[in-house]
Simulated assay, not measured.
Amino acid sequence: MGDPLRRDVLLHRAIYVAVALFMLFLRLLPLDSTAGRLPGPDILLCLTLAWVLRRPDYVPVLLIATVVLLEDLLLMRPPGLWTALVVLGSEVLRSRLALTRELSFLMEWLFIAMLMLAMFFLYRLAFAVTALPQPGFGFAMAQVLASILVYPLVVGLSRITLGVHKPGMGELDDMGRRL
């Protein structure tokens, strides 16, 4: 018999990879070729940050790096730049788990918004320093704002459909271990 806790963690990791691949598949589909439309939110970033805050054991750093690097390669972004920023952002969250565990959702949302904005500005700064062409500021900022606005929806869907929630201070798993 396998460890039920281990099986749950592996199941959620597989779900994370499946959702990431599905979101990547949708981004690669040529659904609409009309120019000038506003960009959609980065749902994979929202999902990653939400899960790192709630259950960091579901999304280890190597899994995050692999998934986002694959996204970088398939979307033809500079390989590793966005990956490094997402890993850095998720590790900032992971290092502050004790502080964020008891935050209200509004404060958590504000913290995530500031983190997303910092990642956005660092990404643009790296492009500016290397003199790479980049999309217009307003266009890119619209995607960040859309991601910030969709974050509560991603958290809610993760909670309702998959049971990914923030453990309380003294909460134990089924095996009696602290979460």
Results as ranks from 00 to 15, higher is better:
25 F>K: 09
131 A>L: 15
110 L>V: 14
2 G>R: 13
118 A>I: 13
126 A>T: 12
126 A>R: 02
65 A>F: 08
79 P>W: 05
32 D>H: 06
122 L>G: 07
105 F>A: 08
159 R>Y: 07
93 L>K: 01
7 R>D: 15
134 Q>A: 14
76 M>W: 07
146 A>P: 00
39 P>Y: 06
25 F>E: 10
115 L>A: 06
81 L>H: 06
28 L>F: 03
99 L>W: 10
43 I>S: 03
115 L>P: 12
81 L>F: 07
46 C>V: 09
93 L>E: 01
66 T>M: 14
176 G>V: 13
21 L>F: 12
49 L>R: 00
29 L>R: 14
177 R>Y: 11
65 A>I: 02
101 R>S: 08
119 M>T: 08
160 I>P: 00
71 E>I: 01
87 V>K: 01
74 L>I: 02
100 T>Y: 14
8 D>L: 15
47 L>W: 08
37 R>P: 01
80 G>C: 05
76 M>T: 07
178 R>V: 11
156 G>L: 13
146 A>T: 00
12 H>A: 11
20 A>I: 04
70 L>N: 00
131 A>H: 14
44 L>H: 06
28 L>C: 10
67 V>I: 15
104 S>W: 06
3 D>M: 11
144 V>G: 00
142 A>I: 03
75 L>A: 02
120 F>N: 04
19 V>L: 15
69 L>F: 11
112 I>M: 10
40 G>W: 09
26 L>V: 10
161 T>W: 12
30 P>C: 10
145 L>G: 00
47 L>Q: 06
134 Q>S: 14
128 A>Y: 10
179 L>Y: 05
94 R>H: 08
174 D>A: 15
137 F>S: 02
143 Q>G: 15
36 G>K: 08
179 L>W: 05
100 T>C: 11
40 G>S: 12
113 A>L: 06
43 I>T: 11
72 D>Y: 00
175 M>P: 01
64 I>N: 02
156 G>K: 04
52 V>Y: 05
152 P>E: 01
116 M>D: 01
85 L>N: 04
83 T>C: 09
38 L>E: 07
179 L>T: 06
135 P>G: 10
105 F>H: 13
26 L>Y: 04
129 V>D: 03
156 G>F: 11
59 V>N: 01
38 L>Q: 05
48 T>Q: 05
89 G>Q: 03
41 P>Q: 08
34 T>I: 13
60 P>M: 09
19 V>P: 01
130 T>S: 15
32 D>A: 09
4 P>F: 13
117 L>Y: 04
100 T>L: 10
33 S>L: 14
9 V>W: 02
100 T>K: 00
42 D>R: 09
